[in-house]
Each structure stands twice: as structure tokens, then as C-alpha cells.
Design a protein around this nucleic acid. Sequence first.
DNA 1: CAGGATCCAGTACGATACTG
DNA 2: CAGTATCGTACTGGATCCTG
Lengths: 131, 131
Amino acid sequence: MDVREEPAGLLQAPPDVNARNCPSRVILEHVTSRWGVLVLAALIDGTLRFSELRRTVGGVSEKMLAQTLQTLERDGFVHREAHPVIPPRVEYSLTPLGKEAADQVWALARWTEDRTGQVIAARRTYDEARA
Amino acid sequence: MDVREEPAGLLQAPPDVNARNCPSRVILEHVTSRWGVLVLAALIDGTLRFSELRRTVGGVSEKMLAQTLQTLERDGFVHREAHPVIPPRVEYSLTPLGKEAADQVWALARWTEDRTGQVIAARRTYDEARA
DNA sequence: CAGGATCCAGTACGATACTG
DNA sequence: CAGTATCGTACTGGATCCTG
């Protein structure tokens, strides 16, 4: 028996191929994806334009940024506002739902940073043990 | 100016290629990886054997489970205990560090499940808007 | 400026077969 | 049982070029 209330679908995957069609897993993968995490974190402070995001989230290509933003917008995490001016001006911000996700993801990111030293040390121990 | 204290390294990536060598990002990717999340969540309840994990985390292949466990063990999140008996018996559990990570990841997973309906609805709205 | 389209390399992943 | 080894594929993600 499981004391914890099972999410019924997240851990116990459907019988089909790769469980990719389990809705909650897919959403979780969007939120925890490589760039999804960083984009959400970057938008916590407020609205940012495409190029600002690109500078804030270092290392992201245009393609992946656009793709990540579309996914997050479609899932209802990010609000996109395009101003019909020339040159184009598009602003991205978090929806209330996105803010909730971003807060959690950001907490995890901060936690990870704080423990980086511990993890590095653990790795050295691990590596030395089998050298 | 940024009100929030910057993690200095997580968002602002190093100038080199793809920022993959930023230590905290790599760790974050391990923890938030597709199977990493689910393995951590599965171990919250306590110790599990390899085959038990394979059944608990539905859809994971032997290869990916072994690989994920090794990564998490090396990072110091998972403790591996091999009993020298025949047939082999290997038990996996969370370290204190891993428990902290698992709790956060699990909270995020639960949150995602709770909001799945909202996200599906957002997607419909989004899709209909451009149909 | 904000992105779409295209091409291509690397890798993540799964299926299968095999071992101590 | 608990993996490792090998293989083949599908997808990720970056570089580059192009457009309104």
C-alpha cells in the first residue's frame, strides 16, 4: 500500500509505447524542459521582449527560444502580446498559471545552485571509488 | 536592475558554445530530465529494487533506467546498495540530498497533474484562435 | 525586430541480445 | 535479477539564410 496519494497517470504509465501521450507527463516535460525552465525563470521579474529574453537566457538559439515560447504560450503559461508597429515589438509575460509554475521551477533552480558544491563533491567521491 | 538576486550562472550563460558546461545547469537537467523526475518521485516512498523501479516508473526501458540511476547516484541523489547474493539484489534509495530534490520535483509533478485540465483548455483556446 | 524555413550533427532513446 | 553491449532510429537543437 502506498501512503502517498498516487497521481494515477504520472508514475504508472499507460501500457502503450512510450507513455508520451500521458497528458500530465507531457506538460511536466514542457515545464521542466531545458529551455522551458530558464524561460519561465527569466519572466518572473516581468515582461520581456524576444531579444531581451534571448540575452537573458544565455545560450539559447532563436529557434529554440521561439519554439519554447510557443509551447509555453499554447499551454497557457506565457502571454504573448504583439504590437503592430514597425519595427515589430512583441512582449512576453507570465500568466497567473505560468507564475505558479515559474515560482516552483525557480525554487528548484535556486536549490540546485545552492547544492552545486555538494554535488561536485559527491561526483568526485563516486569517480574515485572506481578508479 | 534586477530586484531578484541573480543566480549568476544559471540564466546568464557562459559565452561558450551551448552553456552545457555550466555546472548548475547540468545538475538541474539531471534532476528535471524525463526519467530523472519520475525515478526521484518513485523513491520518495522508500527503497526499491531495480525491477520494482522498472514497474513503478511505467514505460522506462532497462537502458534508460540504468543510465538515469547511475547519473543520480553519481550526483549524490540516490544511494545504491548491492547485496552479494544469488540472484543479485540491488536496492535503491534516496540520500538526504536526493530527498530534498525529490520533494521539490514531486511538488511540481503534483501541481502539474492538478492543472492538467486548465492546460488542456488553454490549448484548445489557442488552437481555435488560429484555425 | 521577430520569427519562419531549411539543413545537418549529435544524442537521446528503445529493442534486442547477451552476461555474471 | 540486474545489468551491459550493440545497433538503429527519431528527435533535439544549433547554424544559417530568409522575410514582413
